[in-house]
Amino acid sequence: MSDRVAAWLRIHAPELRIIGGHASTATVDDAAAALGIEPARVAKSLAVRAGERVLLLVTRGDARLDNRKFKDICGTRPRMLDPEETHAVTGHPVGGVCPFALASALEILCDVSLRRFATVFPAAGSRTSSVEVAPERLAEIAGARWVDVCRLPEASGP
């Protein structure tokens, strides 16, 4: 668990409890297995460059970034940050990236794909911790804006 994320959550969302001490949540499939949930309910956070801006996109675990939708909203194609850049701007290791207690002030986007679920599970700043939170509350505490920039697997529906 990240002490920085725990301290941040105590201030901004004291009702949320960090789920820690489980197996690795470094990948969507690992997180889903560790938490006993379907992969789609994992809220993955992606550090993306859009021209000169760096954004954090939070989306459901089985969604894929749609380059055309992203370009229509952000004006340019997305470029994923490498693990070192991601850690530098977020303060979290890849596999533990979340929209809480960021090292840099980043614009945060939540993809509408998260809204299908009553609760989702973003990481909590480490590869072995997460939180359970309603999507609307996630966007609220992260200061995120809702966007539609992802595509879902064919079998997932809306």
Rank of each mutant, 00 (worst) to 15 (best):
A144R: 11
K69Y: 02
T90P: 06
R60Q: 15
A7M: 08
V89H: 01
E38R: 15
V42T: 06
V5H: 09
G157F: 10
S156R: 14
S113M: 04
S24I: 05
F121S: 10
A7W: 07
T119S: 09
L35M: 10
S24W: 09
H87K: 15
V5K: 10
H12K: 14
L16I: 05
C110T: 11
E52Q: 12
T86V: 05
A123V: 06
A33K: 13
E132W: 09
G95M: 04
R77D: 15
A142E: 06
M80Y: 15
E136T: 03
P153D: 13
V120C: 06
R53C: 00
V120P: 03
A124N: 08
R127M: 12
V97P: 02
P122N: 09
N67Y: 10
A155D: 15
P158S: 06
G20A: 14
S130R: 14
G61A: 04
W146V: 07
A142H: 00
G157K: 09
C98F: 06
V149W: 10
A34Y: 08
D62Y: 01
F117R: 06
C110M: 13
L46G: 01
L114D: 00
A40P: 08
A63H: 03
A26R: 11
G21M: 00
L109R: 04
A134P: 14
R77Y: 15
A31P: 13
S113G: 15
L16S: 07
G20K: 03
A34P: 06
V42A: 01
G75D: 08
R79L: 14
A103W: 04
V42Q: 11
T25Q: 13
G21W: 03
R77F: 14
D111G: 07
T27Y: 11
F121W: 14
S129H: 06
R77V: 12
R53G: 02
D82V: 03
V42E: 07
A23V: 01
G157R: 01
D30W: 06
P39N: 07
V120Q: 07
W146C: 05
A88C: 03
R68D: 15
P122A: 08
W8S: 04
A103F: 05
P14W: 10
G157M: 01
P14A: 02
G36L: 03
V131M: 01
L35W: 14
K44Q: 08
L65W: 07
G96L: 08
L152E: 09
E38G: 04
G20C: 00
A31Y: 09
A34L: 04
S130A: 14
R145H: 11
G143N: 12
R17D: 13
E107S: 13
G75F: 05
F70W: 15
D62P: 03
A123K: 04
L109V: 02
D29Q: 15
V112G: 13
D72T: 11
A43V: 05
D148C: 06
P135F: 09
A103K: 11
A134W: 10
D62S: 03
